[in-house]
Every structure is written in C-alpha cells, then in structure tokens.
Design a protein around this nucleic acid. Sequence first.
DNA 1: CTTGACCTGTGTCTTACACACAGGTTTAAA
DNA 2: TTTAAACCTGTGTGTAAGACACAGGTCAAG
Lengths: 142, 142
Amino acid sequence: MKVTELAKEFGTTPDTVRYYTRLKLLNPAKSENGYKYYPLTEISRLKFILSARHLGFSVSDIRHIIDEASLGKSACPLVRSLIKERLADTEKQFQAMLALRKNMNDALAQWDVKEDKTPTSTMVCHLIDSFEPTKEYGGSHD
Amino acid sequence: MKVTELAKEFGTTPDTVRYYTRLKLLNPAKSENGYKYYPLTEISRLKFILSARHLGFSVSDIRHIIDEASLGKSACPLVRSLIKERLADTEKQFQAMLALRKNMNDALAQWDVKEDKTPTSTMVCHLIDSFEPTKEYGGSHD
DNA sequence: CTTGACCTGTGTCTTACACACAGGTTTAAA
DNA sequence: TTTAAACCTGTGTGTAAGACACAGGTCAAG
C-alpha cells in the first residue's frame, strides 16, 4: 500500500502517515521509483498507532510501547501504567475546560445587560475588566 | 515595576510577561541600566490580558481587541463577537475530551479482566488492538 | 570588592501534525 | 506518442503559548 491509500483506509491523512514514518514508527519498503510501500506488518502497526492515539496515548508513549514490544516483552504492563497517567492528565484538562466553559458562559450572561464603553488609558474593555468568575468554592484541590 | 515583581503581583511567570512584551502587547519603559519598568498603564494592561486569557481569548484575539481600543473605538462589540466563537471552540474541545475520557475509562474497565500477552509481528499490544469504543450513538453531528 | 541574586536579549524546544514547494512518476486521454 | 493531470518524494517551515537555556550585565549586602 502507498501512503495515500493507507491514509484513506484508516480515515487519517497522508501527512499523518508521513509523520509517523518520519519518526520511524512506520518502516515502509521503498520501491525502485522511490515510492514508499507499506506491507502488512506496517499496516497493522499504523492501525495500532491510531488506536493508541484515540486512547489518549502520546506519540512518545507509543514509541516507548513499541520499543518494549520489539524486545519481545509484553508491552501490556507499560500500557496499563501509562493509561492511568494519561487519564489523570485528561481529567485535569477536563476540569480546566469545565471551569473555562463556565467562565465563558457566565461572562456572556453578565455582559448581556451591560452596554458598550469606549476605552480609556487604563481600560481596554470594561466587559473583560469587570468580569467576575462567580466562584462557587475556593479551589483548594491543587 | 520590574518584570518579576509584576509577574508575582498577578500570579503569573516572568516568562509570560516577557512573552507579551516581545509581542509588543506590553510596552515598558527602559531605564538606563537596561531594565524594563512597567508603569501603571502597562500594569493594568497586563491585568487585562490575563483576564482575557482566563476567558478563553487567544493572544491573537487580544491583540485585535487592543488594536481596536487603541483607535479610540469601543472594543466591546468585537469582544462580544469573539467570545461566542471561542465558546463554540471550547464546547467542541470539551465534547472531544468527554469522549476521550469515556474511551479511556472504558478501556481501563475492559482491560481489568484481560491478561498480558507477548507481542507478535502484527500485534504490539492486544489490549489496545482489541479495544472497542463502546459506541452509544453514531456520531453524525460533525 | 566580591558574592549572589536579580536582570537583559535572544534562541531553541515543546505537540502532532498541516502546508508549501520543487521536482520525479505514473496514468489516462488525445 | 506526446502531454497533461494526478500522484508521489523529501525537506523545510508554521502553528500556540509560553518554558527553558545561556552568556553576560547590574545591583545590594557583607
């Protein structure tokens, strides 16, 4: 399979396939014309990489996992351990986004009843300057 | 005020202050010794920038807002318009994180009852390979 | 006057690709 | 058969928002 074929097969982009290839996560054969051809092992490896990405693993994680597996060892323990870290990261980001979203919605609501004002030397926009986060609890969890 | 003082005052880092200064969002005076000194107008401008960042505006957005205000015009209409875009972006990312988090939790649960396996030429880790997203509805909203 | 704590600018690094570009290759039509 | 479209190649750069490094200047205290 060639780059674009492969990309389409798995619903990704040629650039992504090239990217992984650049990082040597994929190792295609090169035909005489200079084109890259991906044999079955590389095809299933791409599938693996994409699945792992969908599970929140970073490309660097994936590299470590592949390295482990290529030593003949089971990568499963590493995978189990890594996903817990990534889940914790995701949870943090998720909470941050939750708070951000709330702030944004609160701002929209507050601003609805405020008029526009012209700026001064110390005030670019009073909407933003006067916004208050509507704190519900003092964040003491971090 | 000097860089580090300013950063501490608003709970950010000197690097962040320097970054905004590099982008000319802040325009400190330079004293003879070469140090940067931030007068009151710049101090309140930093406060503005940080508030805007907390509301999900990008640095680029902020630049546009400041540009608008520096023409003497009210930046409020722009601000109202931009935050709606950013809120939509945030909502999208939020939903994506929600789905990711679910996938990760599902994976953890599924894997709990699976044993480790050694890799083969076409399988790096069966945990990842065999993971199924537990789709609840066919995502047809984008 | 020296030590240590601050400051300076500038340059590089990060993530996971997307996009650009100059040029080689293949394919299908003319 | 010529040629033009449609593919492919590697490599280089851009992205967001800073973090970190580094060589060197400056300042307060002992």
